[in-house]
Design a protein around this nucleic acid. Structure first.
Length: 276
DNA sequence: GTCCAGGTTTTTA
DNA sequence: TAAAAACATGGA
């Protein structure tokens, strides 16, 4: 990996396996927009425009101080080539998923944002999930830039009444969002503790929240706590396991089964004809 | 109008 | 205990 700075931009060269479109559009996050060849979004409360050039990734309006944060967010110190190689050996259809999804990195998102986002995702479609999350940020986050708002803190959400939250049109999920925010705010659930728990304990802890079942708990662990062994099973993964992997159990995907899940999800969603 | 969406809770038998 | 039904909302 080679870092250079020019005109207030960071340029990161020589990262293998990093495609912005696949990383942002694979369903792990909901707040990055693409405008032409640029992606625009927020990392730790800062707004960045990022583009993919032939030589590498360029991040506008960033300097040396931002580098470690950006490397961490994009998980640039993990060798995804090695992960794909390991996974590819396990099953032919997993190899196909790995080949198709080359360039996806599992982002290290904020745990509260991941939790809240995947609570909203339940029994919902992706365009509407994005809309609800945008409205949540617009109404209760802080303005960072034109059209860009921070994800509101759980403290801020915990103080809201259900009717105040109704402006985001999240439907029956509103009370789940409030329950999550309040349980974290009042110390019933402590995010820093979950970071250090075994995955089994962490699952139990997260499922104390109303509206958090197995799927949302796994998504929170994978995308918010970077537990690469978490394996969320949604309708797409269920179908994929039945049709593409009838002869194998997910446990055989090993310590990186969360990454496997992401590759299978992306491969399946981008190729729905596989199931016809 | 009907169906469905990165599920979970509540009700029913 | 396990299987249905209900849950809000909006786009196809």
């Amino acid at each position: 990996m080679n870092i250079s700075y020019k005109d207030n931009n960071i340029c990161i060269e020589g990262v293998e396996e990093f495609k912005l479109d696949a990383t942002f559009d694979c369903g792990q996050c909901f707040r990055w927009d693409s405008t032409g060849d640029k992606f625009s979004g927020i990392i730790f409360g800062r707004h960045f425009n990022i583009s993919e050039r032939s030589k590498g990734i360029e991040i506008e309006n960033s300097d040396k101080q931002d580098l470690e944060m950006i490397k961490d967010y994009f998980d640039l110190n993990t060798d995804y080539r090695l992960i794909r190689e390991k996974l590819s050996r396990i099953h032919p259809n997993l190899k196909k998923s790995c080949d198709f999804s080359k360039g996806i990195r599992i982002l290290k998102q904020d745990p509260w944002e991941a939790l809240c986002s995947f609570i909203i995702s339940q029994n919902n479609n992706i365009p509407r999930i994005k809309k609800i999350i945008f409205n949540l940020c617009l109404n209760f986050g802080d303005k960072i830039d034109e059209n860009y708002y921070s994800f509101p803190s759980y403290s801020k959400i915990a103080r809201l009444k259900e009717e105040e939250l109704s402006i985001i049109r999240s439907g029956f999920r509103a009370k789940y969002i409030l329950d999550a925010a309040r349980k974290i705010e009042n110390g019933n659930i402590i995010i820093d503790n979950i970071k250090h728990m075994s995955i089994e304990e962490a699952r139990i802890e997260l499922k104390k929240i109303l509206g958090v079942g197995p799927k949302v708990a796994e998504c929170t662990l994978l995308y918010g706590f970077h537990r690469l062994e978490a394996f969320p099973i949604d309708t797409w993964i269920k179908r994929a396991m039945n049709t593409l992997f009838p002869d194998i159990n997910e446990e055989e995907f090993g310590e990186y089964k969360g990454v496997a899940q992401q590759y299978i999800f992306y491969y399946s969603r981008m190729n729905p004809n596989l199931f016809k």
